[in-house]
């Protein structure tokens, strides 16, 4: 018995040792690649100037000693600026294309199965960041198999962790979501909220923004909608990855504060740029590093981005704007104070 056991044990140990010895050279070859003299060329296109994400991206590559050159172009909030940049990229044939945001990504690398693929960058590995719903935006087929040589990082916390953060604040029972019904991102977001909210014992008030004369959501209706939410008994507003609302976040959040409603945000912009009270968001610097890990796998590991699942962060940042808290006088519990990042919103 004992002898048999010993032999089995010996076999396992030998196997492990052998595995270590065999595994070593492949790790070696990876570092060797990093020493290559010619730097990788990375072409980045952003929506509105450089952000913390790009800083984190570069930090990681520098820390790993990966040689690269990075060209950065900005669309300056206008998709019509895209074609010349696409042409420039086709000309330069970089090793990797980096795109920031849903709009940028769609206008540079195009949607899946685009009717006129010639208008977009083709055949160059791509990485996207800050795309809330890459599947519904038709950028990838699925998170696991992207269906084209493009992958990225997802930046939203799961709807469950967002609702948990709202619950943990300890004060809220009725959640109102005002959203742009014309945006597929927002519709998906609302649908998942409707599914998850009851599990957390939260009531949900759903208020689509009415369309104006131009068939687009009308920002002038926002104060009315917030009043409506208040009257329906909502005690907190929810702001998803909605570009319409993000654009009008200043009006939205100030109006909310005026009627004494706090706003929870699932993206960083309404917290950093406006006066949302708190939110569960990804840290942009960390997000950039995560994108750089994907880039490393593509550039050094020679992996096809098609087979690289869209990565997501394991931890998100609980962001609280303390000035808004004090104004509304709804204080976070101590357990939340111990883990949250407190900021001060830009007060207009």
């Amino acid at each position: 018995m004992a002898r048999k056991y010993f032999i089995k044990h010996l076999a396992i140990v030998s196997f492990l040792v052998a595995g270590l010895l065999v595994g070593q050279p492949s790790a070696q070859s990876q570092t060797n690649l990093a020493d290559r003299s010619e730097p990788f060329e990375i072409f980045a296109v952003v929506w509105r100037g450089e952000t913390e994400v790009e800083a984190g991206f570069k930090d990681y590559l520098n820390q790993r000693g990966i040689p690269y050159t990075m060209t950065i172009r900005s669309l300056e909030l206008d998709r019509s600026n895209a074609p010349p940049i696409v042409a420039e990229i086709q000309q330069a044939q970089p090793d990797l294309v980096y795109t920031w945001g849903t709009g940028t990504t769609r206008s540079i690398v195009g949607p899946l199965n685009a009717e006129d693929p010639g208008k977009f960058v083709q055949g160059i590995p791509g990485i996207f960041v800050l795309v809330a719903y890459p599947i519904s935006a038709k950028i990838v087929e699925s998170f696991e198999q992207t269906g084209r040589p493009i992958t990225g990082v997802s930046f939203l916390a799961s709807i469950e962790s967002q609702l948990k953060a709202i619950i943990d604040y300890g004060k809220f029972t009725k959640l109102a979501v005002i959203y742009d019904n014309t945006s597929s991102n927002s519709r998906i977001n609302v649908a998942s909220l409707e599914e998850a909210a009851p599990q957390f014992g939260l009531e949900l008030v759903v208020l689509p923004v009415p369309l104006g004369d131009n068939e687009k959501p009308d920002p002038a209706k926002l104060p009315e909608l917030i009043q409506d939410a208040k009257q329906q008994g909502a005690d907190i507003l929810y702001m998803g990855p909605d570009s319409f609302l993000t654009r009008h976040a200043d009006v939205y959040t100030s109006e909310a504060i005026a009627v004494g409603l706090p706003t929870f945000a699932s993206t960083q912009a309404p917290l950093k740029g406006s006066r949302a009270m708190f939110g569960l968001v990804s840290d942009y610097h960390t997000l950039g590093k995560l994108a750089a890990v994907q880039a490393e796998k593509i550039l050094l590991g020679k992996q096809n981005p098609e087979n690289l699942p869209v990565a997501s962060l394991a931890r998100f940042k609980l962001w609280i704007n303390i000035d808004v808290v004090k104004e509304i006088e709804i204080y976070p519990p101590m357990n939340m104070i111990a883990i949250a990042d407190f900021k001060t919103s830009p007060i207009n």
């Binding site: 006088e329 976070p332 519990p333 111990a338």
Partner: peptide, 26 residues
């Protein structure tokens, strides 16, 4: 330190602190 962060840095009135007992219980 954490309590002082809430009262001094965040300027939350000490009597208005929320969830202190749960925090202690942990």
């Amino acid at each position: 330190g954490q309590l002082a962060y809430a009262t001094r840095d965040l300027e939350i009135p000490v009597a208005d602190l929320v969830g202190v007992e749960e925090f202690f219980d942990n």
